[in-house]
Design a protein around this nucleic acid. Structure first.
Lengths: 120, 120
DNA sequence: AAATATACATTGACAGACGAGGTATCTTGC
DNA sequence: GCAAGATACCTCGTCTGTCAATGTATATTT
């Protein structure tokens, strides 16, 4: 993983919700999908993933059921609830705001050349 | 504060470095600056701020000295080191990558209408 | 029979954020 | 003179999300 996890921290749940917006899925698949989409630049650690599932289910944002595989390891599928869908939309909006804020704060204020009609 | 702190987590140090890129400053001033720039949408909590100072100084990214105020409360000024400047640039680049990744992951994959010439 | 991939789960430790509390100085109003 | 509020710094202890380590079980490949 090449990205600092502290920068992703807090997005784990939204990442999961985003996956479940598309279709019901299970831990292992969600994880692979994240890896594929990011071209291996990011992956969810299993412990992180499963503890996020617990929180999301506890909060009523997702629901789980056992898949009926007749071969291979058993899978616990998750589906997103209506509450979860709303939560997802809220989180996305929050992320947009957050992005703007951080962009603002990480910019090293104004370089002199950029101040043309600076007020105050 | 209106923004979830877990979303900012990990940026505290870079926010401080960004401020110090402009000029030497001290805790209280940096904090007010952050509040002003974000129009009160975000503020650094004091405990967070000062523990970040400790880390940054310990790592050699900033250096501190006491201001020689002849009135008012004493101030501990911080200045950014060359190492700190490099760290700042690195963190900014990381943030840009991170932004791209999260944007990618929070997007609920493809809505059917957007798939026109889907490969695979 | 061993290795690899799939798949889920728990435990304990760690690090950053922060509420709560503390100190000290200066200014303003009564 | 002194209470209140702003400025300014600092620490302690708690909380929460992340993650390394470890464990289980099944199916496939070598």
């Amino acid at each position: 993983m090449s990205i600092a996890s502290d920068l992703i921290r807090g997005h784990t749940e939204t990442i999961i919700l985003a996956q479940l917006m598309e279709k019901d899925s299970y831990g292992y698949e969600i994880n692979r999908s994240v890896q594929q989409r990011t071209e291996k630049q990011y992956e969810l650690k299993e412990a992180t993933l499963y503890s996020a599932f617990r929180r999301l289910e506890g909060a009523g944002y997702i629901a789980s059921y056992w898949g009926d595989e007749n071969s291979g390891a058993r899978r616990r599928y998750y589906s997103i609830t209506d509450e979860g869908r709303r939560k997802y939309e809220r989180n996305r909006r929050e992320w947009e705001e957050c992005k703007t804020l951080i962009d603002l704060l990480l910019r090293s204020v104004a370089s002199p050349s950029e101040i043309v009609g600076g007020n105050e």
